[in-house]
Simulated assay, not measured.
Amino acid sequence: MVLTAPDAPVIGLAKAIHLSVAPVFLLTGISGLLGVLSNRLARIIDRANVLQEAEELSDISGSRRLRLELGVQKQRIGLINRAITCCTLTALLVSLVVAVVFISAVAWIDLAPIVVPLFVVAMLSLMGALLLLLREVQLATNQVRRRF
């Protein structure tokens, strides 16, 4: 098959779409992780609200225990907030990678020197989010163990 000049833009567009598919699947996974993180944050906030209400009604010894538990909830909230920030940054960077790859393929410009560091930083940010989630889960698990 001989390609004519009018076919070149279509081929460039097809190549751009092909190169953009894998990062789009990654975005789907990241959105799922953001959902998990948001749900965890909501549960932690709900638990903290219950503890605050219980603290207001408890005696001094019970209030001390509840304040300690509220401190752990505060740590967990901070960890999940940072994980959400890292995960959102990952999604933004991957979206930028998709845009740059698309522009690169359509414009026939080699933008690999831009794509590679963006993707590496996106993966580092994703690893950070996962490590923060792991730490938050460890705190939650330790908190449950202390109750029993």
Rank of each mutant, 00 (worst) to 15 (best):
M1C: 06
P6I: 02
P6T: 01
A8S: 05
A8Q: 13
A8F: 09
P9N: 08
P9G: 07
P9W: 09
V10Q: 13
G12E: 10
L13E: 14
A14N: 11
A14C: 04
K15I: 09
I17N: 10
H18N: 12
S20V: 10
V24T: 15
V24P: 03
F25P: 03
T28W: 06
T28M: 15
G29K: 09
G29C: 07
I30Q: 09
I30H: 05
I30Y: 06
G32R: 02
G35W: 06
G35P: 05
R43L: 14
I44F: 12
N49G: 07
Q52N: 11
E53Q: 10
E55R: 09
E55D: 01
E56V: 07
E56M: 06
E56G: 11
E56C: 00
L57V: 03
S58P: 00
D59I: 03
D59Q: 06
I60A: 13
I60E: 15
I60G: 00
I60F: 08
S61H: 13
G62P: 05
G62K: 08
R67T: 07
L68T: 10
L70V: 02
L70I: 15
Q73T: 10
Q73K: 15
Q75A: 08
R76H: 04
I77R: 13
G78Y: 12
G78W: 12
L79F: 15
I80P: 00
R82N: 12
I84G: 07
I84C: 04
T88P: 04
T88M: 08
L93R: 06
L93A: 11
V94E: 02
S95V: 03
V97T: 11
V97F: 01
V98H: 03
V98D: 04
V101K: 08
I103N: 00
I103Y: 13
I103V: 15
S104C: 06
S104F: 07
A105D: 05
W108N: 14
L111W: 03
V115M: 04
L118N: 03
L118I: 06
F119W: 02
V121H: 02
A122Q: 06
M123I: 15
S125L: 04
S125W: 03
L126T: 05
M127C: 12
L130M: 12
L130W: 01
V137H: 03
L139H: 10
L139A: 05
A140R: 08
N142Q: 14
N142V: 01
N142W: 10
N142E: 13
R146D: 09
R146G: 00
